[in-house]
Write a protein that binds this DNA or RNA. Structure first.
Lengths: 134, 134
DNA sequence: TAAAACCCTACCAAACAAGTAGGGTTTTAT
DNA sequence: ATAAAACCCTACTTGTTTGGTAGGGTTTTA
C-alpha cells in the first residue's frame, strides 16, 4: 500500500501539474486546496525538491514548481523517493536490492514470481508520468 | 514489500509442498529446516489453517499439511491472508476496498494507474500457485 | 495415561507512520 | 534597508504495526 505521505505527494503534484508554467505555487495554497496538513506537506515537498522533482523560489512571490515538464517525471520515481522500494522482496529490487538470507535466488520460486510482478508493475509505473494524473 | 511474516509463510508452505502426501509435518521440523522462530511460525500456520489453506492433525504423529493439491492454492490468496491488501490504494482493492476521501474515482488519474498495476499484479499472483514455489 | 502435538492469551521492544511545535534563514518587493 | 513572505530544519509526540517471547491449556493417540 502507498503510505498516506505518498498519496499526499501525488495530490500535491497534481496541483502543480494543473498550475504548470504559472509560476511558483505557495505551500499554503496547495495545503488548502488539497487539504493536506501544511507542515507535513512542507517536508514532503522538500524531499521532492532534494531529489530533483521540484524546484523552489524563496522570498515574497516564491513557492514550489515542477522542475521539468510533467511528461518527464515518472510515477515510479516519485514512489521510490517517498515510499522506498516498489518491489515486493528486497532480492528483486532494482534500486534497493538486498540479497536474501535462506534463498539462493537462482532456484527460488518466490523470487521468480516476485520478479515477474516487479516487471509487470514497473512496466506501468515507469511509463506513466505526472501528466497522467490530471 | 512483503512482511517477514509473509516470507516465513511462503518458506513454510514450500516445505509442505515438498512433503506433500507424506503425512503431517511437525511445526518443529518446519521451524528447524527453514529457520523460522517456532512460536512465531505456530501463529502463522494457525492463521493459514483458519483460512482453509492448511489442515492439521493433533496428538502423537500429528502436524500440518496442505488442505488441497499445491496447484490449487494461489499465491495471491496466501498474501491476502497474511499481509492483507495487494493493491497499492484502498480505492482499487478488490478484497479490502475503501473509497477514498478527496478523490472521486471516476476522474482520478492515480486511481486509474493503480488499477492498472493491480490488474497486472493479480494477473500473475492469481495464476501462480504453491506448486510454482518449488 | 502420558507424551506429543496443536491451540490460545498475554505481553514486549523496536520501528515506522503521521503528524505537531517552534524556530531559523533567505529572499525580494517596497 | 528592512520587514514580511516564504522556504528550511530539528526535535518531539502519539499511535500502530512488526516481529517476536513467555507460558500455559487442550486434545489426541500410541
Amino acid at each position: 500500500m502507498l503510505s498516506k505521505k505518498a498519496q499526499y505527494a501525488f495530490r500535491a503534484l497534481t496541483h502543480l501539474v494543473e498550475n504548470y508554467n504559472k509560476g511558483p505555487v505557495l505551500i499554503s495554497e496547495i495545503s488548502k486546496k488539497k487539504k493536506i496538513p501544511q507542515k507535513f506537506l512542507e517536508s514532503i515537498l522538500l524531499g521532492l525538491k532534494q531529489h530533483d522533482i521540484l524546484e523552489s523560489k524563496k522570498g515574497r512571490g516564491g513557492g514550489y514548481y515542477l522542475k521539468e515538464h510533467p511528461s518527464q517525471t515518472y510515477i515510479a520515481t516519485v514512489m521510490r523517493i517517498v515510499d522506498g522500494p516498489i518491489s515486493l522482496l528486497p532480492c528483486v529490487s532494482l534500486y534497493f536490492y538486498k540479497r536474501c538470507k535462506n534463498c539462493n535466488e537462482k532456484r527460488c520460486g518466490l523470487h521468480d514470481i516476485m520478479e515477474n510482478v516487479r516487471d509487470a508493475t514497473l512496466n506501468i509505473l515507469e511509463r506513466r508520468t505526472l501528466q497522467d494524473l490530471v
